[in-house]
Design a protein around this nucleic acid. Structure first.
Length: 592
RNA sequence: GGUCCCGUGGUGCAGUCAGGAGUGCACGCCGCCCUGUCAAGGCGGAGGUCGCGAGUUCAAAUCUCGUCGGGACCGCCA
């Protein structure tokens, strides 16, 4: 992402002036020449030229400006200073075109040290990437760097754009509780002991899902919130314990309505950050996404799609293909130079993903296929393979024959292994994935497992399949995908008790179970629940990609490490025995 | 729960495969010099539990095992 992309107009000087300063350092331009200014910030760098000339780069939130001082021997890196002086054009030949403030400097400076500072634990510059533990331990220093300041700005810009889009579309911001009730579904929850009722617990919400549905019953009609969500699951580059969502829910809506609300907000956010509005977000059905990309969160940037090869090999004599329920291929452009070691590794990878094997063919100059199995294929099959995949010399072809789902998942993963650019690279590849199956498979007891949650409305055309063929029932649920990252998901909810009862029956949830788990929601629905649906956009992921980062920790002010610790505060930490007593909590000795 | 990678003055790296004195590079830090630099420049200096603990060896930053911390991924994340 280019650093020149417009973010937001800088606040005007009157808004940033304080008792101690008149301007922000990075805002000064040639037009300010002649003005007396007072600036406050940190000493970014000193360049001393003897006793009576030194340059001090003063850094604040807005950037840096060069201050010319008589001597700087009493200044050190990261000292907090107040500089007063006169803005002036730089002398002929000393303009710095790499600096936004490079046409001017602040001359005749008086420098007041507001606070001395120890040398920083790592350089406050984007030029070197310090150890991440050190960065987190001294996050207040790390965040001074241009890159991190910019990431915070991108995040605030996205936040503002999303809020503004939701307000414009008539949504009402409502806050929902952080202290919620335990529910047995979904992600592992963070547990909060109750002091007033020892032995009982709140949990932190994994999302405001049920609360926002209650707000629909309450007649709020259109709700949104930039909501903190908390899930006690293992951390990843794209997952933290606590993360933020643009959460929304609306009444009397169709799926198209919801997709429209979310598109407007996300496209606004992208435009606010990049200055360009992406085109309309294309839609794929879940079946298309799986068939063409082998993934329910397809990365549209990652090279060619999977190719159906059943017809090509319909009458094959090659035993590995004959009679297979599904045969598909993938063209990997330019990978025809892979050696046997890499190809063997790919084969192992395919087997690890569930395939019985992997057929690879290198396309040689002239179009001949170089492969251990080429001799088992007829001339027509080889030509058909090249024709169907569009293979060219230098390409690698991969073919898998197996159950359809296995073929798609294996080739989909290999497609990413071989052709996926870094998540933060290239144009924004947004896509909707719609018509997810209602159930994603069977649990060990043979019961369908909900793909989204138990309140997802089935596709109206598939209602009568609930009993006869539940796994083929589509749902009115949908995901938003950006560069192969799941940005969010949502659904139209069930508001009719007869449909909900049918779903519970299919899931094997008895009336008593349902009452115990979701009683308060079912109660609410008896008092007039409007048809409704909603969505939640993962804010950290959206911001990371818009900021050009491949890790959401880079767009979170104070993130946790992969083991869930905060090197800055030392969290998590023990609490006093007295507090535990008050909470009615006893800690077990560590397992041996 | 599992797989893989990393850990060397304050910072970033090289050295580890193939054991031989804490060896090297760049930055930073401290001191001196320097009037137009902008990653300023020159000279000098200080700074080390090679993450930690065992083991092998005459000898371990280097090999082995364990452990701690960090990262990527699988499981997990309705």
């Amino acid at each position: 992402m280019s650093p020149s992309r417009p973010l937001d107009a800088p606040p005007d000087a009157s808004a940033t002036a304080t008792a101690l300063r008149t301007d922000l350092a990075g805002d000064l331009r040639a037009g300010d020449a002649g003005r007396q200014v007072a600036l406050c910030g940190w000493v970014a760098r000193r360049r001393e030229h003897g006793e009576h000339l030194a340059f001090v780069d003063l850094r604040d939130r807005s950037g840096v400006v060069q201050c010319v001082v008589d001597g700087a021997s009493d200044l050190r890196s990261e000292y907090v200073v107040r500089v007063t002086g006169t803005v002036r054009d730089r002398p002929e030949g000393t303009v710095n075109p790499d600096l936004a403030t490079g046409e001017i400097e602040v001359g005749d400076c008086a420098v007041e040290v507001l606070n001395a500072a120890e040398p920083p634990p790592f350089p406050v510059t984007d030029r070197v990437d310090a150890d991440e533990t050190a960065r987190l331990r001294h996050r207040y220093v790390d965040l001074r760097r241009d890159r991190m300041q910019r990431n915070l700005l991108v995040r605030a810009t996205v936040n503002r754009a999303l809020r503004s889009a939701m307000e414009r579309q008539g949504f009402l911001e409502v806050e929902t509780p952080l202290l919620w009730v335990p529910t047995p579904e979904g992600a592992r929850e963070f547990v909060i002991p109750s002091r007033l009722r020892p032995g009982e617990f709140y949990v932190l919400p994994q999302s405001p899902q049920l609360a926002k549905q209650l707000l629909m019953v309450a007649g709020v009609d259109r709700y949104y919130q930039i909501a903190r969500c908390l899930r006690d699951e293992d951390l990843r580059a794209d997952r933290q314990f606590e993360f933020s969502q643009l959460d929304l829910e609306a009444s009397f809506v169709s799926q198209d309505d919801v997709l429209g609300f979310v598109s407007e907000a996300v496209l606004d956010a992208a435009q606010a950050v990049t200055g360009e509005r992406p085109g309309e977000i294309p839609r794929l059905t879940w079946a298309e996404a799986m068939g063409r990309f082998g993934s329910d969160k397809p990365d549209l940037r990652a090279g060619p799609e999977l190719v159906e090869l059943g017809e090509v090999f319909a009458a094959t004599g090659f035993r590995a293909f004959a009679g297979a329920p599904c045969i598909k291929g993938l063209r990997a452009p330019g990978h025809g130079d892979l050696g046997r070691n890499r190809l063997d590794a790919l084969t192992e990878r395919a087997k690890g993903l569930g395939a019985k094997g992997l057929v690879w063919l290198r396309v040689a100059d002239g179009g001949a296929l170089d492969s251990p199995v080429a001799k088992f294929l007829s001339d027509g099959e080889r030509a058909g393979l090249v024709g169907a995949t569009g293979a060219a010399p230098g390409d690698l072809l991969l073919v898998v024959a197996d159950e359809r789902r296995t073929v798609e998942i294996v080739l989909g993963q290999l497609r990413l292994d071989l052709g996926r650019p870094p998540v933060n690279e290239g144009p924004l590849a947004l896509t909707w994935v719609v018509d997810f199956p209602l159930f994603e498979g069977l649990d060990p007891a043979g019961r369908p497992v909900p793909a989204h949650h138990a309140f997802t409305m089935p596709h109206p055309d598939d209602l009568d399949l609930l009993e006869s063929d539940p796994l083929s029932v589509r749902s009115q649920s949908y995901d938003l995908v950006l560069n192969g990252w799941e940005l969010g998901s949502g659904s139209i909810r069930i508001h009719r008790s007869d449909v909900q009862a049918a779903i519970f029956a299919t899931l094997g949830i008895s009336d008593e179970d349902a009452r115990a788990r979701f009683g308060f929601l079912l109660d609410a629905f008896r008092y007039g629940a409007p048809p409704h649906g909603g969505f939640a956009v993962g804010l950290d992921r959206l911001v990371a990609i818009l900021a050009g980062e491949d890790n959401i920790r880079e767009v979170i002010a104070f993130p946790k490490t992969q083991s869930g610790a905060d090197p800055l505060t030392g969290a998590p930490a023990p609490v006093s025995p007295r507090l535990l007593d008050e909470l009615g909590v006893r800690v077990l000795p560590p397992p041996t």
